Each structure stands twice: as structure tokens, then as C-alpha cells.
Computed example of a mutant assay.
Amino acid sequence: MGDPSYQHLAPAYDLLQQDLAPSAWADYIQKLEARFSLRCGAGDGQDGRTLLLDLGCGTGSISLEMLRRGYDIIGIDVAAGMLEQAKSKAARMRADDDASLPEPLFLQQDISQFELYGTVDLIVCLLDTINHLVRPDRAARLFRLCANYLNPGGLLVFDLASRRHLSRTLGNRQFFQIYENHTLIWHNRYRPASQISRSEMVLFTRRTDGCYERQDIAIAEKYYSPKQVRQWSRAAGLQLIDPASGSPEDSRTAIPPPAPAAERRFYIARKPQANEGLSYESE
């Protein structure tokens, strides 16, 4: 996630995302890469493996599934607690499953200002992460940074929460979730004028002495339209591709996304190769 408020949600985050199905998301990413990536030659990872950058990696569920599939991983998140969970999960996975797996690199950075030492072959930014950048200039800067660090022909795969998700599914509603050691009370407000959804949460976590510790959490997400995404992509020098039609490629079979399209809109942007110009659908 790109929101520092997720720091306090870290201990309970995987419970809240227990329906995530990382394998389905990894399948989707790999299918998109196989169809649309034009990257040539060996990857920038160790021994020529594909180097994947996961922006807003959270507790690393999708990153680590991609690691299992042979990718080298860099995960970036602003919340230290999320990264601690990701590192612990990676250590357990390497100890229990395969000690030969490369160690992922998890970095605590703001995804709208991240810095790397070199380029990467594939970038993902999933689970509404960009919506947490409620200032459009920060979102635009993220696209420019992705274009800067992405190898020619490589893909940026991302999703954005739909207007329906923010205004109706979350809307002006209250949620109450109880787990064995955590209880979450969630009050949501959506403002049509700003198109910002604000969530005020109270998380109670049971301690070893049986008492509960309270954390107050505030999270905001902003709706961004497809037109805005096209503008950011064009300004960054990225070519936006429609995963359903395959434009500008001839792709007759749609790749189904891993989550309902009514709740999230999925995008692919590609960094053009040196001899490839930009093309866009009409707005």
C-alpha cells in the first residue's frame, strides 16, 4: 500500500485480504507479460531472471508468489510494519519451501518518490495502491518514475478502484469485522465533489495478557478516471494498452482479471522500444 496509515493495519492486513488469492493475481500478471511485453534479452535479475518491482507491496503476498515462479523481486512500501510482515513471510517461505529461492529486496520508500539503483523488467502496482495517492501530482510522478526505471518493452501493470467501488461498495457505510485476535470497526464517507473516500477505522488487537490495544487509523482513496490515466501515461512516455482488445496488438482473446471489473479497472502500460512510437485510443 502507498498509505502510511497502513502501518497500524499491518498485523491484521492478511486477515482483511484473506480472499486475495495471490496465485490468481500472479497468473494474470504472467499472462499479460507473455502477451504484451516486448522486452528483449535476459532480465536484470540474477542469472538473467526477470526483475519485478512491486509498488505498494504491502505484506508481500503477490511479490512472494511471483518469487516462487522464478522472478527476482523488489518490493516497495511506505509502511515499515507491512515490510516487516513481508520479510518474515519471505524468510518462512525460504526456510519451509525452498532455501535456494533468491532473497527478495524490500525497501521502505514513498512510491511517488522511489529510487532504484538500476532498471527493472516489469512493474506492478495493484490493489488500489494508486488511489491512495490522493494528490494527482503524486500519481503523475509515479508514472514518470516507472517510465524512468522500466526497461524498453517492459510493462507497468496496475489497477484502480472504480467509481462504483468507492462511492457504493464502500460509500457512506459502516463495517464490523471480528477475528480471533483482532476486531476492526470501519466508518466510511465518500464525497462526490472531491471523489475521495475516507475511512476512519478503529483496530483492537488482543495482547498476550488478554487486554486489547487500540489503534485509530485514517485512510483516504481518490477516484481517477481512465482519461486521467491516459494523460499520465502519455506525459510519462508510456503506451497504454487495452488488455481486453489488445490494442494496438491484434489480440482476439481477452485475459480475465483476477477481481471483478465493476470494482477495479485494470491497466497495462508499456515503455516503447527505441524504434516504437506512442499510439493511443481517441479520448
Rank of each mutant, 00 (worst) to 15 (best):
S162Q: 07
L67M: 15
A42L: 15
C57G: 05
A254C: 15
R189G: 10
I241A: 02
E213Q: 11
R68E: 14
I73N: 01
P256M: 04
Q273C: 14
E180V: 06
V124C: 14
E65Y: 11
S194H: 11
Q109L: 09
R207W: 02
T59N: 03
L9A: 08
L101P: 00
A161Y: 06
A218H: 09
Y6M: 08
W232Y: 10
L32G: 07
A99Y: 01
G56Q: 04
I76K: 03
Y212I: 02
Y117W: 00
L64N: 09
L20N: 03
Q108P: 01
R164V: 15
L156P: 01
S37K: 07
L55K: 04
M93W: 04
D242H: 06
R135T: 15
A140V: 09
L166T: 08
P226V: 10
E84C: 02
A274N: 01
P192F: 05
A244H: 11
S225Y: 00
I74S: 03
S112D: 04
G118L: 02
Q174C: 13
R163T: 14
Q228F: 00
P4C: 12
Q85D: 01
A274C: 12
I62A: 13
T253K: 15
P256F: 08
G43M: 11
L240E: 11
E221W: 00
H8T: 15
Y6N: 04
G56R: 04
A86H: 01
S194A: 13
S5V: 14
D27V: 10
A244Q: 08
S247V: 07
F175P: 13
A42Y: 06
L184E: 05
L116P: 00
L67W: 10
S225P: 03
P272T: 06
L116D: 00
N172V: 13
